[in-house]
Write a protein that binds this DNA or RNA. Sequence first.
DNA 1: GTAGGGTTAG
Length: 640
Amino acid sequence: MLTKATFCAHQPMQLSRCLSNALARQTACPSVLQNPPKSDTLRSGGCLREALLEMAIQGPEMVFAGYVTLLDECVDKRALRGGQRVHAHMIKTCYLPPIYLWTRLIVFYTKLGLLGDARRVLDEMPLRNVVSWTAMISAYSQKGYASEALDLFQQMLRSETEPNEFTFATILATCTGMSGFQLGWQVHSLVIKNNYESHIFVGSSLLDMYAKAGKIHEAREVFECLPERDVVSCTAIISGYAQLGIDEEAIELFSRLQREGMDPNYVTYASVLTALSGLAALNHGRQVHGHVLRREVPFYVVLQNSLIDMYSKCGSVTYARRVFNSMSERTVITWNAMLVGYSKHGMGRQVVELFEFMRKEKKVKPDSVTLLAVLSGCSHGGLEERGLQLYREIINGEHGVQPEMEHYGCVIDMLGRAGQLQEAFEHIQQMPFEPTPAIWGSLLGACRVHSNVDIGELVGRKLLELEPENAGNYVILSNLYATAGRWEDVRNLRHLMKEKAVIKEPGRSWVELDQVLHTFHASDRFHPRRGEVFEKVKDLSLKIKALGYVPELSCALYDVDDEQKEKILLGHSEKLALAFGLMASAEGVPVRVIKNLRICVDCHNFAKFVSKLYAREISLRDKNRFHHIVNGICTCGDYW
DNA sequence: GTAGGGTTAG
């Protein structure tokens, strides 16, 4: 028999421990789980009833505190049934439960992933405050229900509840996932109105929203106006630059902020590594890796994933694999990063082997990116048969992944590579998607390689209609006309290009030497040693001509005579970077050139001859993949 | 009781 005296001797915490054990036992019983909660259950629940009774003796406040403790324990133990019992008990016995108790129930249900139940609590509670609204909005947002979150936010505003810093941080993160920034912009004005712009959480959410919408200047402005900064806001702006491919700025900002006292954490390093992957700055990447090891930054999977990506995009799949092998825990992204690495290097066999290993291990389920990486690996690695077989398996639903546009894109690429242009064309028309310019572009590239003017012209014209502003399409179609000797068409195309005022992203290439990136533009006017470099390119050209190199004049798009065209070609940024790499590095050392666009046919040829002449390994990373050239032969098989 | 930054693909 329990007496009041013994109850008072208990602390609520001790009580709840006894309770949670009982609740955990009850949750484990499947027959209880299958039954909907009934108030009767509480009567026979024993331990719970006694504990609550015990607390009730200490007055209503203690009951509320008891409920809170219980709900916390239920969240920790993921005891759904227990929480439901507390909920039922609260409804039955409490007269006017306070708002915070209702809110705790919302949190309990959202943490167990039961958004519907949480929403029911919100709808049923007699009074709501900013915390209860925000808890529900945040749950919707985090589970990916952006429109529900926004809808609720609007309801909250209509109910004349003032949003607080939590609400704004949450709703801005929700806007980040939406297309465009119109909505985020409107929320921004609300933020200003409510005077939360300088709040560090709201500020970082706000700048992240702008950065992810591509508005990096706005993001930077928010960042610069923050009265205080912490590692999260700093990381947000750095990763903003990195994700938009403004890699140099990301690195510079990182160095500056670090000098100013920012203490980077594993997320910061992951973002910095992304920027270094973009620049293919292997030595910088190694340095960051060393730094991370020395500082004993915890090796979270995310950081290791970005190390794998950095090493493979910087040309070292061996190092990437070393990191991969060292990991005790791998996520699907780990596997994907490694597969993509092999794929970009044209290592088809390794892609297929790793994929088989992944399937055999069965710890991680392949997703659509995995299959994309394997398909693209087969395509770039000369395993078209295996790739087509995998494609058929995907279509038949054998991999449990819905085929997407990109998967079809890979197949078009494979058919094109195999010279089956008609099949590729038909395949595009039979796809269950409206073909994107990228799909047509891939076929156009295939037509150029196989000199198929008939299909190429059809595809090229379609592309010019779809994206008249993309200079690349004009270039390839013009190449194609040139190979067929259709000079009149080449001229017309050039006029059309002028008329549409097509702006071509300026091509640039770079080499990394002694931790310095040397960047070259076409017919460079900036690099201090450009004079020597031009001479070197001319010299190389003369020497390889003796070996059989013939400039591919169709790669020069200007309406000038052949001599001028050759001069233009010799000024291409990748040739300058290659020549500089040869000049500035020791004999026999491989030269690694990186280009921001796709490498042109003439430069590819040029590099092949140079690798033969100097017995040097040349690796060229372009927008799509790596070209490893040894003794005049490239791993891409002259198709890219 | 409620909140912000991160890794693969395109």
